[in-house]
Amino acid sequence: MASEDMPRPSASSGGGWLGKADTWAGVATIVLALAVIYVSFEYGLGRGGRIGPGYVPLVIGLLLLGLGVLLVARAGRSVDLLDTDIAWRQVGLVTVGIVAFALLLDRAGMIVAILATVLIAAPAAYGNTLVSTLISGVALAAFSWCLFVYFLKISIPVWWF
């Protein structure tokens, strides 16, 4: 959301058909569209008068397919260049942190999950030391325990037992 406001230096300033944003947006759309269309056939399409559960997904899938093709076809005239300057480190670490939280919450409990998430995600920001990370992890776990377990009495597993 925020990043699109500011022009960022693009690594592939060369252009060309493969260097256009629309080309790859189109390819992604086509892949998604095909998956949706494939799945929608499993749901049953119903009849014209009383449509089945797969009807709407199929229509949306076909529309997506058309738009994806359109994107690829018109990519040549587009001025948007592909932005390959992706902060892989940040994207990766934050994503893994979130997935770790989801996997750990039910199995190891909230405290472990929060500590793990903070430890995993912390290296995404430069300047975090191990000590500062541990402090913020413990503080966050304590805060969450106080708020959600103590005050609000939400039933979440705090520990693994």
């Binding site: 699109e4 997904p57 949306i60 997506l64 738009l67 359109l70």
Partner: peptide, 25 residues
């Protein structure tokens, strides 16, 4: 930005919205 891409995102949103138990069937 691109109108086509906005429409694509609206449709993707509809697909996400379809997830779940269908009300009618």
């Amino acid at each position: 930005g691109s109108v086509v891409r906005s429409i694509v995102m609206v449709l993707v949103g509809l697909i996400i919205g379809l997830a779940g138990t269908g009300i009618t069937d």
